[in-house]
Structures are given as structure tokens and as C-alpha cells.
């Protein structure tokens, strides 16, 4: 008689299991085992965390550090995590708070430090852009790069809150309820910000909107 195979765990359940294990290992002083188990959580959430941080902060180096900090913080404070709530939401909240702190610090810094050098087109030049790359043809790359840059500039023109909500809803695929839990905003407020963000982006990226292409600082790919 064949045994019924156990139903596969959902991401949320799997996260909760890992979190419980990590906590138990930490409490027992088996720190190597705790770290090893925690790697599963890093594996599962790293990609989406970096997307959120990258789109929110608009700077790769900052996003990198923000994600690292968020994982370290979540490991340190895993004791305060309640397994009845999704780890994803708890972790994203930590990440967003870290990103917000970085944005504030950046604003303070930019008040005193001169902006980075830009080329004649007003675009910040990145040495990595001059390196040879693999993949699609140069024409495709140019077109893709142009479209990405337009989107990047347009996203940069959104107010921070709209950008965050758009990032979480659109790039991360969260529902307005989940975004509400992550940001602490009202669900209807989340929806309003999302619609406003989309309207603004559509107007900025419309074929006739040349002002998006010409200006804006490009910080990505650093």
C-alpha cells in the first residue's frame, strides 16, 4: 500500500519552520547550525529583497548594503518574530525601514557634498559601462538600456512613498493588503498611491514625454 506523500509546505510555512529551527539553535548555543539554517531564508528572500531595495534606493551599492543589514538584523532579532505572521512581511518591514534610514542619510549627505560628475547629456557616467559585455547585440542593448534608463529616471521622479508602494506592488507582486502590512499604511491609501504612481509613470514614459530622457541622475549599476 502506497503511503500518501506529505503535502508540500507553502513558502510561508517553510519560512516559519526555518525561523523556529534557527531560534532553537540560537537558544541552545549551536550558532553554526543556526547560521546554516538561516542561509535557507537568505536564499529564498535575497532576490526579491534586492529588487525592492534597488528600486527604492535607486543605487546598487546602497541596495546591496541595505539588504545585508536587513538580513543581519533579522537574524539578530529573530527572537521577536512571531511565526503566526509571514516572515516575508516581517523581513520586508525591516528592509524598508533600513532603506528609509539610508534615504534620509543620503539626503543629509547631498546637502553638503557636491553631486557626482555628469557628462554632457547630464547623465552620471559609470566606469562599468565602458567594459565589454556578453549577451544581446549592441543595438538591442542600446534600446534596452535606453528603455531601462527612461524607467529608472521616471521612477526616480516619483515621490518616495509612491515609489515604495509601486515597487512592492508591481515588482514584488504584493497585494495591497500585504503592502499595507509591510508599510503600516492603510490599504486604501496604498491603492491611492499605487494608482497615482502608475498615472504619473505613464505620463512620464509616454512617447512624447522627452523630459524624462534628458535629465536625471543615474546611480544604478555601481
Amino acid at each position: 500500500m502506497a503511503e500518501a506523500s506529505p503535502t508540500p509546505l507553502t513558502t510561508r510555512e517553510a519560512d516559519a519552520c526555518v525561523a523556529i529551527d534557527v531560534k532553537a539553535h540560537q537558544a541552545a548555543g549551536r550558532l553554526d547550525a543556526a547560521r546554516e539554517r538561516f542561509t535557507e531564508l537568505v536564499d529564498r528572500h535575497q532576490r526579491r529583497a534586492i529588487r525592492i531595495a534597488f528600486h527604492y534606493l535607486r543605487e546598487a551599492a546602497d541596495a546591496d548594503e541595505a539588504v545585508q543589514d536587513a538580513f543581519v538584523k533579522s537574524y539578530l532579532h529573530l527572537g521577536t518574530f512571531r511565526e503566526d505572521l509571514p516572515f516575508e512581511v516581517w523581513f520586508t518591514r525591516i528592509l524598508i525601514n533600513g532603506c528609509l534610514d539610508r534615504l534620509k542619510a543620503r539626503r543629509r549627505r547631498e546637502r553638503w557634498i557636491a553631486p557626482p560628475p555628469v557628462d554632457t547629456m547630464g547623465v552620471e557616467r559609470d566606469p562599468a559601462e565602458y567594459l565589454p559585455s556578453r549577451g544581446p547585440s549592441p543595438e538591442e542593448l542600446v534600446l534596452l538600456g535606453e528603455r531601462r534608463e527612461q524607467l529608472s529616471v521616471a521612477l526616480g521622479k516619483l515621490p518616495e512613498r509612491q515609489r515604495l508602494i509601486f515597487t512592492l506592488s508591481h515588482f514584488d507582486g504584493q497585494t495591497s493588503r500585504e503592502v499595507s502590512a509591510m508599510t503600516g499604511l492603510n490599504e486604501s491609501t496604498v491603492r491611492v498611491h499605487l494608482f497615482r504612481a502608475i498615472r504619473r509613470l505613464r505620463s512620464l514614459l509616454a512617447p512624447g514625454a522627452s523630459h524624462v530622457k534628458s535629465r536625471g541622475s543615474r546611480r544604478a549599476h555601481r
Binding site: 532576490r47 534586492i50 529588487r51 534597488f54 528600486h55 546598487a60 541596495a63 546591496d64 534596452l144 531601462r148 524607467l151 529608472s152 521612477l155 515597487t167 508591481h170 515588482f171 544604478a220 549599476h221
Partner: peptide, 9 residues
């Protein structure tokens, strides 16, 4: 957006 983030990382 995803491609941009994935290209950067």
C-alpha cells in the same frame, strides 16, 4: 524593472 535589478545584481 526586474531586468534592471537583475542586471545590476
Amino acid at each position: 524593472g526586474m531586468a534592471e535589478a537583475d542586471a545590476a545584481f
